[in-house]
Computed example of a mutant assay.
Amino acid sequence: MKRFLVATVVGALILGVTAAGASNAGQLDRPRQPNPMVVTDIQIPVKGQAPVTAYLVRPAHVDRSEKLAGALYLHWFAPPNSTQNRTEFLAEAIALAGRGAVAILPQLTFPWEGDPIGDNSDRAKVTNQLAAVEAAYQALLRQDGVDPRRTAVIGHDYGAMYGSMLKSRAHALVFMAGDATWANWFDKYWLGLPADQAVAYRKVFTGLDPIDTVGRVKRVYFQWAGRDIFVSPEIRAAFSTANPKATVSLYETAEHFFNQQAKDDRLAWLTDQLDLR
């Protein structure tokens, strides 16, 4: 099990937050000393499957009386981008931990390590990946000091889709640029099915699509990118209909990877929802 401190990185992130909120230059010269974060490489057991590889991020020093929030970060699919894995949100998780949270960032495997093939086995693969994500969330709840009433799931792209479907409901969900159905992206970017087969394939995922489950989550923050070539305005509208009470941000000039403003807004929303300092 690998562990390493990230005091320097956290210090830089905290200084960035301080700078953004400072009212005069003198405040920038006196950043508070951060509590170093510990990043641990862990393995999470999953019944009937290989263990999940994940990062565990938490403050190095915590008062035993202090309750911590919990965050599960689920990454995007974007080959060959170097961030299409559990590293995507690592810096953000470190920043959130610096405000009083524990984060787990699992490595997802479908469709990262295997292509859809266009039949009922794809539903089983989604279900298995969902079980692994559920195991990661349960591992988060078992972490020392984590308050189960103050947890959030943050997902991007396929990560958002999996995050919206957890049976164990977190307190809050950040849904970043995911699709409404599994069949749409699987068909469009892998299978290229004829129209009649495409209709049948969509039925494979009946009751398992994110658009069917996101309405059950009470506190949702949808983040959409205005220049996203993968998510259409119609998909955005469908999610708003599915959960009309959700908070929504549209970043008109952002592409599918989003931008710094989206990250800042996400951290601010999570800070409020999880009652962080």
Rank of each mutant, 00 (worst) to 15 (best):
F258S: 10
I235Q: 14
A135W: 02
G163T: 01
Q197G: 00
A19D: 01
V126F: 06
P116M: 02
V126W: 04
P233W: 11
T83R: 15
G98F: 08
V6E: 08
V57N: 02
Q197V: 04
R236M: 09
H75W: 05
Q84M: 15
L166Q: 04
V220N: 06
F257E: 14
A103G: 00
A60C: 05
A183L: 06
P111A: 12
R169S: 13
A20F: 14
L191Y: 09
A180T: 14
I104G: 06
Y137T: 02
G70S: 03
R150D: 04
Q273G: 08
L191A: 04
D157R: 14
T53F: 11
E92Q: 15
V39D: 06
Q107K: 08
I14S: 15
N35L: 15
V214A: 13
Y221K: 03
K203P: 08
K167C: 12
T206Y: 11
M161S: 13
Q107S: 07
A180L: 14
L140D: 00
A172E: 05
D63S: 11
D115P: 05
Q197N: 08
L208W: 01
G155M: 07
W190A: 10
P111Y: 13
A69R: 03
Q84L: 13
R58F: 09
N85Q: 11
D29P: 11
I42L: 02
V220P: 03
A132F: 04
Q27R: 04
A172S: 13
G215T: 08
V57T: 06
E255Y: 14
K125P: 15
A136M: 00
R64N: 04
F89G: 03
Y137I: 11
S249E: 03
P45S: 13
K2G: 08
A101E: 03
P111E: 06
T127K: 12
V62F: 10
G207Y: 13
D179S: 07
L140F: 07
G21D: 05
P233H: 01
F89R: 05
Y189L: 08
R86T: 12
A237H: 12
T206A: 15
P36F: 09
L274T: 10
V174Y: 07
R58P: 01
L274V: 06
N259V: 12
S249R: 05
A54V: 01
G26S: 13
E134L: 10
A91K: 02
T271L: 07
Q129N: 14
R236C: 06
Y251I: 05
V57W: 11
F258K: 09
A71I: 15
Q49S: 11
L74Y: 12
K263C: 11
A242F: 08
D272M: 08
V6P: 00
D29T: 14
P59G: 00
Y162T: 08
N24F: 09
M176I: 09
A22W: 01
N24Q: 03
A60S: 12
W190H: 09
V62N: 10
M176L: 11
D122Q: 06
P34D: 00
F258Y: 09
S82N: 12
L90T: 05
R32P: 09
A135C: 01
L56T: 05
T151F: 13
D264T: 15
W269R: 03
F230V: 07
E234K: 09
A97Y: 01
R236L: 09
A177E: 13
R64T: 11
T206C: 06
W182S: 13
L141P: 04
I211S: 13
M161C: 08
A200E: 09
